[in-house]
């Protein structure tokens, strides 16, 4: 039964969850990703989020479902990709990830990864040291997701980051995106 369900939710439908704590800009990152995929790459997309008091301080998450077909159920069912910027988020959502799904973690924040088969990058630390602000860790991680999965085009993502970045922070965000591309490329080599 499990394999059959997988076929329906499988090849074409791609489910991403960006998770961490409130204030890390994960909802904005989800919106950026969805806007790039939907309005520029021209695929179907549905973006949902955890909404409520926890969006301001506690755990926070944004889900993005991508498909070339019409998206029936808009929420994530079994994740193809999980980004976890905190240990808590990783522990909470790892069980939603498919067996062959991709796990990307902040290697400094998630000290006990649930599996060795994951990509680890010190997103927050890199954002601080390379760009000068921890706030852009969300965009760095978007860059790595783009480079590692190809689920969104670089051109679309770049355009949306430029458009959606808070005014005055465009340059920093674009640099963060480049950084994300770069660190992922190094891993792929």
């Amino acid at each position: 039964m499990k394999t059959k369900e997988k076929q329906v939710t499988g090849s074409d439908r791609y489910e991403i969850r960006l998770s961490g704590s409130g204030g890390q800009g994960l909802i904005l990152a989800g919106v950026m990703l969805a806007e790039a995929v939907g309005t520029i790459d021209g695929r179907n997309v549905a973006q949902t989020q955890s909404y409520g008091p926890e969006a301001r301080g506690g755990a926070s998450r944004a889900d993005v479902v991508i498909s070339d077909d019409e998206i029936s159920y808009p929420k994530a069912m079994k994740l193809d990709l999980l980004l976890a910027l905190t240990q808590e988020a990783c522990d909470s959502y790892y069980h939603d990830l498919k067996e062959d799904g991709t796990l990307i973690i902040d290697s400094h924040m998630v000290t006990q990864p649930p599996t060795p088969r994951c990509y680890g990058f010190p997103f927050v630390q890199l954002a601080k040291s390379e760009i000068g602000v921890a706030m852009v860790a969300n965009v760095v991680s978007l860059g790595t997701i783009c480079e590692l999965t190809g689920i969104v085009s670089k051109q679309a993502l770049t355009e949306v980051v430029r458009r959606r970045a808070p005014r005055g922070t465009e340059e920093k965000n674009l640099k963060a995106l480049e950084l994300g591309f770069q660190i992922a490329k190094n891993v792929k080599k």
Binding site: V31, N44, A46, T48
Partner: peptide, 10 residues
Amino acid sequence: DEVLGHMREK
């Protein structure tokens, strides 16, 4: 509803 009101689609 809350989900439809807040979810984003193209």
